[in-house]
Write a protein that binds this DNA or RNA. Structure first.
Lengths: 131, 131, 131, 131
DNA sequence: GTGGTCTAGACCACC
DNA sequence: GTGGTCTAGACCACG
């Protein structure tokens, strides 16, 4: 099954390289089950059109995902989630450390644009219930 | 007052340019009142040592902040929050849009490292109460 | 120390991608001690000129070596052999299997160009004594 | 005689195109006498099954061999080594140059996988005596 | 000066 | 049609 309806998007001026944003989204989709082992990823060409980025940029993201062992590519037919691909498992301690690190950057960026902590919490809570 | 005890940090491999991370943190500190008009910022030298970053990088951040009118630099004595510096005011609609955009990127990055929405919400809530 | 005198070369029409040939050569240099931990690699620009290939091709090779953990890159100063980089250790059995696989491809290619096994053995023996 | 028991193999991730690997092996078999003029080659279908490769890929290899004059195809009955097919004859100088070029590439690849020159020499010597 | 990212576009290998 | 490789060239971040 091709995940054609997935909400692939990138922000161009966030500072985070586009290809890394793609990697993050694929990893996130695998982590929360929207993409399952053996599923086919969008083709390089499809994603490059949808995101309006250069095909090479998508290919670069897919290449790194393959090197990381998360996906496999089959010339002539496409890219697929690796059979063994599994969401990363972190200890509670590591989760908190990582959340701390991310939130710190996240909050600084948010506040610098005039948002408050509550704006963020509210948005996240909304997303949670929407799922 | 010199904000020497503020938690200045940068992540080198986050993709967000280091100088932008510094800008974000200064803006955030101004936005939430940790830095007030007329307050002195850490010196370039102090920050470059603390963050283990090239002085040019800190200088570039301060230069852009000055161009944005948020700080003023006084040769020989340091950089100060501009008297008129005010947190940006956004309409509710803009706040929501910005929060949406930011959250989307951060959630993907969080999930790609094995974190859940709850991990993020929990961390932010904690921060809120700590203030 | 920059390994400026290393015999970096690529064959353009061998079928093996140029960037993989570069990777192989770096790995080989690490494996046999010509490159040691902390040594600096040729800069992207230097190698691109020496090999007469596009800088991106060299950069791609270095990027994969970094992802594999063999080298580290420091923006603004260059690429270095990772402190922990070590030649791969294989069991005798694996060595034989790998040698079998490589030699099979190697010999077919050699014979298809009119060379005999003896030509190959002779050349390799010569190389050995030259070291 | 059909060379059904010949060790036809391809490596998919070697970088050398699959169809070229097939060409090399046919040429090698002709060069060392395993295939003689008038001998029949494996059918496209047989080889595609044995190598687990797309029939088009086998067909492409055979087509190029025919263009090179090494084999002839007779519709309905198969492909045969051309009556005039002869191993290429190279001058000593060319042989050495070719061997040098090939060995250089293969040694880098071998060492990058942790093999030594001796591993290669040993394997080749073994092959020689097995014939 | 260093490496990193992205684009545009070409050609190739394989299904 | 699929992905893979390479080039040329621009712009950016960092020291």
């Amino acid at each position: 099954m091709i995940v054609a309806n997935a909400p692939w998007t990138v922000e161009f001026h966030s500072g985070v390289p586009v290809y890394k944003q793609i990697i993050h989204q694929v990893q996130a989709a695998i982590a929360d089950g929207r993409l399952r082992p053996e599923d086919q990823l969008p083709t390089v060409r499809a994603l490059h059109q949808q995101l309006n980025v250069n095909p090479n940029t998508v290919a670069k993201a897919y290449r790194e995902l393959e090197l990381a062992g998360l996906i496999t590519t089959q010339r002539g037919s496409g890219c697929f989630v690796a059979p063994s691909a599994e969401p990363p498992k972190l200890s509670d301690r590591d989760r908190k450390a990582k959340a701390e690190q991310l939130s710190s950057r996240y909050m600084a960026e948010a506040q610098s644009h005039g948002l408050s902590i509550d704006d963020l919490i509210q948005n996240l809570t909304q997303r949670k219930s929407h799922v």
